[in-house]
Amino acid sequence: MAPTKTIKNKHAANGSGVSGSMKAKYGSKSAMDGVIKAKKTGGKSHLPTTTGKGRPKIADILKKKKKRVYTAKELGIPELNMITPVGVEKPKGKKKGKVFVDDRESMSTILAIVQAEKEGQIESKMIKARQMEEIREARKAEEEKKYQERKEKLEETKDSIRKKRRRGAPKENDGDADPSAPLATGTNVLKLKKKRVSFA
């Protein structure tokens, strides 16, 4: 019987979780010698129970210390900062290889999209060109207007100078018209004739 009891104690030492109930058992069987020894051992086993209570705690601590492995999504790392670039990673569940376009319907849809895009580009280019042309025309007209104004101003100043000259002309004209004057007056013609010198 005794060995069987010792086995029971061993179970208790292991800390099977029913230590409370075991203690109750020991209390009831205290009269038996072998059992008392066994109790002593059980007393010894009391310490282990206390230590047994501590041991699992340490184990728990050790378990808690194990680092948690985070997935890339949990960490929120930018997608570009990966070993495999985004473009290279092939999506799962999709068919491998290229998808060819050979039927007329799909080709005509692509064609329509491309042509619409191109038409839009050309249209915008034309509109831009027309606007630029308008701006150029306006600038040209403005330049011409300015040139005309400047020309008119110049003409005005020229006229004013001419008028000024005419006003002061009679006094100046006497000296200028010396060669023509003798023709008009006969006295001067005679004087000129007198001045003539002839060589033999």
Partner: peptide, 13 residues
């Protein structure tokens, strides 16, 4: 081989 969709777009444009 026939052209892929991407290639068709490039050629058409």
């Amino acid at each position: 081989r026939p052209l892929t969709e991407e290639e068709t777009k490039i050629v058409f444009s």
